[in-house]
Design a protein around this nucleic acid. Structure first.
Lengths: 327, 327
DNA sequence: TTGAAAGCGCTAACAG
DNA sequence: CTGTTAGCGCTTTCAA
């Protein structure tokens, strides 16, 4: 089955006995067309099943109605939700979205971004890209919003998560519920997100440095971290973990050690992954509004595309405490 | 910051003192260019940081190097992985991917697909779209591959999951391990995937109809289903669940009823969601090779774009048994 | 080995 | 109210 030759505006014009200009205008309503003509043209459009070629339109208008989304890995739930939120914002405006995963490879990222530049009206970039990687975007004067980064390099639209505050909220929640010694399990080579969460926690507890342990960023890390914390002369009665997987690991450690959660140790995680509500006891956690992040990024980007001289804006979403059974 | 006017091929030609034709040819190597000229042109390209406008290229070549992916919801892990696999296949070929979630709204789907038609070289459609919705794609002679559908409507490239076989494998695994009475919890208003899994199970057990119960497709459904199954005069010693969430629900039911998993009741799920390896005991499940699905779809699509008269092909992936602790 | 010029399908001045 | 025409930035005959 060969691709059928698309019917063009010329075909419509010919068949309707009018000029292409007129056809163009019945489509765009950018200038009056007599009712008779309009009807005739519409009939022909219908009959020929004509659809304007968006490519040609884009070329003329220098507007592609498409934006690019660059993420480390679309498979990461945070980015998945964000992508969905982005589409939520884009769809009503008739915008499409090209998604690319870079696996955090700067080379790939750089290349991908350059490739996109001529095909999109703007880009959403996430995953703490280095300034060097986004330089081409800046040079091209391409509308851009940074997602989930803490890049201080102001001058751009940014939407990000209040990770420090999330750390504060988690710690305070525990304090308010009379937990006295609160431990924290963080990840080895913590990224800025993990660091901010830890800093937030530190800001509310008079932290005994012993209470903060570094572990691998997985289930086993959590279990090990729990064991280490419990060996302290004064073990904690509550543990905050840098993310839910680690937190679940902690709960298994507790289970193995016959420590009741939350009665003997409370556990709080971050992210609200699906498993958080599926484990027993269900995990109390700080949820990131990832879909909202994406949506906000989309709205910001759309506004910037419309008005490139707008003042750069910074949107920060608070994490939301999801009270469940583990604390 | 106004969008800087992109430097075009004309600018390069002018600055290099050659014709645009020549510039075009040093880029495409579609005809010989003297080494001196080529060097000069390359130098100017470098200096001006010139990048050809892909839009204009696409328009001439009638090839956009972009494909569309239409899914019900990119947030569903199956589609997320598939999207990633699709990109895996596409990236080496220099193809990009426009992703759209339709929420299974036929209206949206129809509209989205029509919109895409002039912007992409092919589409991957998933989520059991009705024939009516994909009619525009067919009419346009647009290369297409159906993902995860069982649409018998042959004539298209299809990549799908061997759900029936997965049901068989799960049941047989249990039989081989000497479980005698195997129950199955399916979902109310089961879709074709659920139905195929159930059918596969039925084909290996001499099924006592009592052993198959319908429940809501969630954690509670699993727990309830477990309770119902245990009330049987001859309760099962193993339970297969239509998906992992239901299976986890079953495990909680078992826990509440003080039935040891897998010693008293074995549990097997489908999908291998993240939580499957995070719950205790870890859930044995039939994993769908979703990323491979997407990759295969991409390869099929690229081949069809190259050769539209190729014989339609059907790629079926077997589910993979992930042995863990629950069975 | 190189150029001039004709479009790809559409929109928007600029005329009637 | 409608039509003619000049491009958008590129590739590709056709001609030298």
């Amino acid at each position: 089955m060969a691709r059928r030759d698309r019917v063009g505006i010329t075909d419509v014009a010919a068949k309707a006995g009018v000029s292409v200009t007129t056809v163009s205008h019945v489509l765009s309503s950018r200038r009056p067309v007599s009712e008779a003509t309009r009807a005739k043209v519409m009939a022909v459009i219908e009959e020929l099943d004509y659809r304007p070629n968006e490519l040609a339109r884009s070329m003329r208008a220098r507007r592609t109605n498409t934006v690019g989304l660059v993420v480390p890995d679309i498979t990461n739930p945070f980015y998945t939700s964000a992508a969905r939120g982005l589409q939520d914002a884009l769809a009503p405006a008739g915008y499409h979205c090209i998604v690319t995963s870079t696996d955090s490879d700067h080379q790939v990222e750089h290349e991908v971004i350059r490739q996109m530049l001529t095909r999109v009206d703007g880009v959403v970039i996430s995953g703490g890209s280095r300034t060097a990687d986004i330089q081409p975007v800046i040079d091209a004067g391409m509308p851009m919003v940074l997602l989930g980064t803490d890049e201080p390099g102001a001058g751009f639209d940014v939407v990000t998560n209040a990770d420090f505050d999330a750390g504060v909220t988690a710690a305070r929640y525990l304090v308010d519920r009379s937990y006295r010694r609160i431990g924290f399990i963080t990840a080895q080579d913590a990224d800025s997100v993990a660091q901010a969460r830890l800093d937030g926690y530190r800001s509310v507890t008079e932290s005994d440095p012993e209470l903060v342990v570094e572990e691998t960023n997985n289930l086993e890390g959590g279990t090990r971290g729990f064991a280490r914390l419990m060996q302290l002369s004064e073990p904690p009665d509550a543990i905050i973990c840098v993310n839910d997987v680690v937190a679940i690991g902690v709960m298994y450690g507790a289970q193995d050690a016959r420590r009741a959660v939350p009665d003997e140790v409370a556990v709080v995680g971050f992210d609200d992954i699906e498993a958080a509500s599926l484990v027993a006891p269900r995990l109390t956690t700080m949820a990131t509004a990832s879909r909202e992040h994406g949506k906000a990024a989309g709205e910001l980007l759309l506004r910037r595309i419309q008005d490139e001289s707008r003042e750069p804006q910074r949107v920060v979403f608070p994490a939301k405490l999801i009270e469940r059974d583990s604390a």
